[in-house]
Design a protein around this nucleic acid. Sequence first.
DNA 1: TTGGAAAGTCAACAAGGCTGACATAAAGTC
DNA 2: GACTTTATGTCAGCCTTGTTGACTTTCCAA
Lengths: 165, 165
Amino acid sequence: MAESGSPGGETLLFLTDEQLRKGIEAMFFAYRAFTADPDRLLEEHGYGRAHHRALHFINRQPGLTVTTLLAVLGVTKQSLNRVLRTLIEDGLVESRVGKRDKRERRLHLTEEGEALERALSEAQRGRMRAAYRAAGPQAVAGFRQVLEAMMGPDLHKLYQMMKDE
Amino acid sequence: MAESGSPGGETLLFLTDEQLRKGIEAMFFAYRAFTADPDRLLEEHGYGRAHHRALHFINRQPGLTVTTLLAVLGVTKQSLNRVLRTLIEDGLVESRVGKRDKRERRLHLTEEGEALERALSEAQRGRMRAAYRAAGPQAVAGFRQVLEAMMGPDLHKLYQMMKDE
DNA sequence: TTGGAAAGTCAACAAGGCTGACATAAAGTC
DNA sequence: GACTTTATGTCAGCCTTGTTGACTTTCCAA
């Protein structure tokens, strides 16, 4: 019941606690749907969500280093390594020694890795595309604005690191 | 590279695979930020995200049954029970035998439960409020539209079950 | 040459999903 | 009244994915 009134001349009803709670629930349910499609596919291949995330970002930034991927994913080295190791063993990801700095490992998807990434992304984009189409370009712009504002400056920096087109 | 052209007379650039991928990443980063604040608070109390979700929905629908909560959360009985048991033992949730149907357990928050829920929600709403304010009412409307379209009919039904104001 | 950064590994632990199998009480049905 | 179904709870065990802490190897850079 914080800001229910009309302090200035503007209507701030969209900042009501109730509206905020509905927004929170919308995030909860939407995120569940958002991960459901790739999850099904992953299970068939014996992988989990963590594998998907690694594949996604390696695909987006071919040649990124392990340290960068760690920062992007926001997990510990040990946690990522477990996932990365199986992907490399299974021949989905290739780890190449850095040219200038030989300590670095540059990560790339193999053809097989690209194929799985594409399938996972397809599933996820399918739902996204349907939602975008249903809501329209104006709504999509608002959607992106709110999400970007919500992620805060640090994550927004990582977000912008990913190539835009 | 599916729909890059201009099939009709309309610009469908917002349905580009690249735009969809950015949307996917926005969801990923935003959801991470979205859960970060309550997670900190939860850790101080020795609880996890699962406890937060239970508290949230019991608060929203006081007196809901276990079966309903199961449907809303989308987890198994065993998984929910582990969480619910500790909340009841710790005196945050009260389980009352149903009046008409005595098999049912009606779930309610105690005062202590309400206090924690309020604190968690406050943390989460703080970020949400800032994002909403920064993006403006128009963007918020679009945000909600896209999320609702994304969750699909089944989850949308559960979403609408929650009281709106 | 020496300190620090990048990567990898081992071990142990915790949260929170899951399945399967059962048990009980209460409702509902025939 | 006997039988079936529903709502709930519980035990046991497994998996993924996160964590901390300790330690190693390799390599860059001052």
